[in-house]
């Protein structure tokens, strides 16, 4: 069995005004150990929802997630998350942020210091160990967050548009940094992005999730050697392929929405089913 198995996952939210929002429907995917999976798709497609369920922040409405054969039931350091908003603790220094997870495991101070130093070196921020997050640039903050996630020695990394808030220059730099780190510390990575370029630069496999509710539209293997060049004809070919998959998804979406009353009927039916349960 694959290391990560997401089987037939659906998620519906009930909004404040009692509307039923279907975020994900029947999503299934598998990841091998140490695989780098990128999930791309337009925003609102349920990518964050999928990652939040994998992290254990949200419970699925249907289906389940298995990691290493165990069902995900809640958040755990074995599935470390890197957020787009960095989510560093502003009241702790860089060093204390990276040490946070280890402290939670009650690891002794000398041991902790050693692990923290290792990861600060890995992300190249040893010099800033005693700075507060407020004093760092966006890219540095995200490197701290990556170090913090790696420090707890997780089985997998969940990254939700981690570079989405960075300028394009920093973004490219961070992609190379992430790959460099990933070569050193092999992890299973699920990486959400809405940039096709980013997905193809990073991934072993690109999954397209699109539609409302979001469903998996395709998987594309990327076997180009890293570092990858955006001007490479193979790269461009993959890009065109993935883009056409996303476009196909949004086209069929439009048809579905313009189909008179289709959406209304559908959602009413869903609501009914929810009450019936």
């Amino acid at each position: 069995m694959a290391f990560v198995v997401v089987s037939d996952l659906s998620k519906t939210f009930i909004s404040k005004n009692q509307m039923v929002i279907a975020a994900l429907a029947n999503v299934s995917l598998e990841m091998e150990r140490n695989q780098f999976l990128c999930i791309v798709g337009p925003s609102g497609g349920g990518k964050s929802t999928l990652l939040n369920i994998m992290a254990g922040f949200e419970r699925p409405s249907q289906g389940k997630v298995l990691v290493g054969g165990h069902e995900v039931k809640g958040p755990s350091p074995s599935r470390a998350m890197v957020f787009q908003e960095f989510a560093l603790f502003p009241w702790f220094t860089v060093r204390e942020n990276v040490a946070f997870g280890l402290e939670m495991q009650s690891m002794s101070k000398p041991e902790r210091d050693e692990v923290v130093s290792h990861y600060l070196d890995l992300v190249g921020l040893r010099r800033f160990a005693n700075n507060f997050p407020i004093e760092l640039s966006g890219g540095m903050k995200q490197r701290v967050a990556i170090a913090r996630a790696l420090a707890v020695n997780p089985e997998m990394l969940l990254m939700d548009e981690p570079f989405g808030g960075l300028d394009s220059h920093t973004r490219g730099f961070m992609q190379q940094e992430l790959l460099r780190i990933w070569e050193k510390e092999r992890k299973t990575v699920a990486f959400v992005t809405h940039s096709i370029d980013e997905a193809i630069t990073l991934a072993d496999t690109v999954a397209v999730i699109a539609g409302r509710p979001g469903t998996v539209r395709s998987f594309t293997k990327v076997s180009l050697p890293r570092p990858r060049e955006e001007a490479d004809p193979e790269f461009v070919k993959l890009k065109v392929e993935v883009r056409s998959q996303i476009q196909a998804a949004s086209l069929s979406e439009e048809e579905w929405e313009t189909d008179a009353g289709g959406v209304g009927r559908e959602s009413r039916w869903r609501k009914f089913r929810l009450f019936a349960r």
Partner: peptide, 29 residues
């Protein structure tokens, strides 16, 4: 306190008491 910080702390394995002391207290400071 930003909910995402609570999420981050839970994700890193914070037990309830430490969550309160290391995140909630500081965040409210």
């Amino acid at each position: 306190i930003e909910p995402i910080l609570i999420r981050a702390a839970l994700n890193l394995g914070a037990p309830p008491w430490k969550l309160l002391r290391k995140v909630v207290l500081y965040g409210a400071l």
